[in-house]
Every structure is written in structure tokens, then in C-alpha cells.
Simulated assay, not measured.
Amino acid sequence: MNKWIFSSLLGLASAAQAHEFWIAPDRFSPPTDAPVTLSLRVGEGFLGEPVGFGQPMAVSLRWHNLRGNTDLTPQLPATEQASVQLSFDQPGTQLIALDTQPISTELAADEFTAYLREDGLERVIAQRQVSGQSALPGRERYRRHIKTMLHVGGKSDSMVGVRTGQTLEIVPLMNPQRLQPGDALPVEVLFEGAPLPRALVKFWSRRGQQFDMVTTRTDAAGKSTTALPWHGAWMVSVVHMVPNVDGKGHDWDSHWANLTFELPAASSAERKSQ
């Protein structure tokens, strides 16, 4: 990587309590030495609102490729900016991984239960029932662990399936660049490095005004396989929640992970040559 540019944060909506939060590159397959603008978005429907990059919200921002990994966190601005712009001097797969500072929130009991059900956390609903907490507000501290996958210079490589070491992580077990619409993408979900069984996995897609979501569950080995019906940008996400044990006034610690990538519109012959 040989360029790092920041653009100012102007008039961006505050959406800290919104749902999904992801890295949105302006393109997934840039030429070598050409800029890629990365922005953050938060909200629903794989559309959301822009939020800022900066040191106040980041625990870690790391860049991974076949040459190793680089900590970009010190290069983040002291105040949040609308986007960052990177360029890469070598072709191949590049992973950009962001881990955020924890955020505390409290929801009314019925809202918390609805949120748990929406994200497949029925196990937590049952735990709250057993402990007599069902009618109490949900006091939660959540962290984001998000990634985006870029393929520079039209090339992809074995970095596609590399684990970056995030607390909650989604790892593709097949190269999306080699898939055609309708093909299935297997993924593995890991929590603290171990397979996470029975996690609800959501695949998000938006084409213009049309939004679609496909869901599945991981098996006992933390893996799931989902058919992707069409080309374009995709996001795969998962949420995991565990009881809080540090005694700091939160009942639950939750972790939110996602990965954004592109299923290209290239021909089968072009994909096989990558």
C-alpha cells in the first residue's frame, strides 16, 4: 500500500444505535496503484447512513495480504473522517479488518427480546428466562469486528481464506471470485479462534431499490453454506452474545462481525484464470 488519504466528515448522521455496521469500498477490484475509497455505513437493508473513521472509535485497523499484516491504527486521524482512501502497489487479495471500541446500550425488555430473536440468539432469551431477567431491561456492551475483501489488479489468492484473528470472525472457505450466480459459498464462523456452532448467518444483497437477505445456521463445526443468487456486492454477518463477567454494570457482552465482498460479473473462463 502506498497511499493513505482522509476526507473530512461533513454533516454525517449519528446512528450509533442502528443495527449493521460495515466497510463499504467504492470498488472491490481496483487496478494496482489506483485509489480505493473506504467508508463506514451503519443501519438496515445494506444501505444505511455514513459514519466516520477515526481513532476514537477504533481499537484496531489492520491490512492483511500475502506479504504479512500492517497495523494502520496509528495512521487514523484523531477526529473521525468521512472516509479513507488507500492504494495498493501489488496485485492480489487484500483484507482490511476493523475492530471497534465497546459501546454500552440499554433496551427495554420487549425490545431486547425482539432484538435477540431477530439475530438468532434464542439461547440468550432462554438464559434470561431461567435467571428471572425476562422482564428486566437488556444491558449490553457491544463490539464490532468487520472486514472487507479487495482483489487488486484483477487477481485473487490464498488470502481469501486467511483468519485475521478478530474475536468474532467470518472466514470464506471458497474464493467468491470463482463463483457464478447461484453457486454456494461456504463460510466458517469463529469466536475467540474456535468454531461457533448454531450461529445465525445472514447474507445481505442490494441491487438498486431491491434488498434481499438469505439466512442459515452454522453446523456443529461452525460452518454454513449459502447459495448466492446474483453477482454484485454482498455482506455476510453474525452476532454472538455471552454473559458479562467483569462486574462493570453490563449483563451481556455482544460481538458483531461481518465481511463485505463482491461476487463479480466476470465470465466463467475469466474466473478460472484468476
Rank of each mutant, 00 (worst) to 15 (best):
residue 59 V to L: 12
residue 60 S to D: 12
residue 64 H to T: 03
residue 65 N to S: 12
residue 65 N to D: 15
residue 66 L to V: 14
residue 67 R to D: 13
residue 68 G to F: 05
residue 68 G to V: 10
residue 68 G to E: 04
residue 70 T to E: 07
residue 71 D to H: 05
residue 73 T to V: 03
residue 73 T to C: 12
residue 74 P to I: 10
residue 76 L to W: 06
residue 77 P to D: 12
residue 77 P to G: 14
residue 78 A to F: 09
residue 79 T to P: 03
residue 80 E to Q: 14
residue 82 A to K: 01
residue 82 A to S: 13
residue 83 S to P: 09
residue 84 V to N: 02
residue 84 V to S: 06
residue 86 L to R: 08
residue 88 F to T: 05
residue 91 P to F: 07
residue 92 G to D: 03
residue 95 L to R: 13
residue 95 L to D: 02
residue 97 A to M: 09
residue 97 A to W: 06
residue 99 D to P: 01
residue 100 T to I: 07
residue 101 Q to L: 08
residue 102 P to G: 04
residue 104 S to M: 08
residue 106 E to W: 02
residue 107 L to M: 14
residue 107 L to Y: 05
residue 109 A to Q: 03
residue 111 E to W: 06
residue 112 F to P: 00
residue 113 T to D: 09
residue 113 T to F: 02
residue 114 A to T: 09
residue 116 L to V: 10
residue 117 R to T: 11
residue 118 E to D: 15
residue 120 G to K: 07
residue 121 L to E: 09
residue 121 L to Y: 03
residue 122 E to D: 14
residue 125 I to M: 05
residue 125 I to C: 05
residue 127 Q to P: 01
residue 128 R to Y: 01
residue 131 S to N: 11
residue 133 Q to V: 00
residue 134 S to Y: 02
residue 135 A to E: 14
residue 135 A to R: 12
residue 135 A to C: 07
residue 136 L to M: 13
residue 136 L to S: 13
residue 137 P to L: 01
residue 137 P to S: 08
residue 139 R to T: 08
residue 140 E to S: 06
residue 142 Y to F: 12
residue 143 R to A: 09
residue 144 R to G: 04
residue 148 T to K: 02
residue 150 L to V: 05
residue 150 L to R: 01
residue 150 L to F: 03
residue 150 L to E: 02
residue 151 H to E: 15
residue 151 H to I: 01
residue 152 V to C: 04
residue 152 V to A: 03
residue 152 V to H: 05
residue 152 V to I: 14
residue 152 V to S: 04
residue 153 G to D: 07
residue 156 S to G: 08
residue 156 S to Y: 01
residue 156 S to F: 00
residue 157 D to P: 00
residue 158 S to A: 15
residue 160 V to Y: 00
residue 160 V to F: 02
residue 160 V to P: 01
residue 161 G to H: 06
residue 161 G to Y: 05
residue 161 G to K: 02
residue 162 V to A: 13
residue 162 V to H: 09
residue 162 V to W: 09
residue 164 T to D: 04
residue 165 G to F: 10
residue 165 G to M: 07
residue 165 G to D: 02
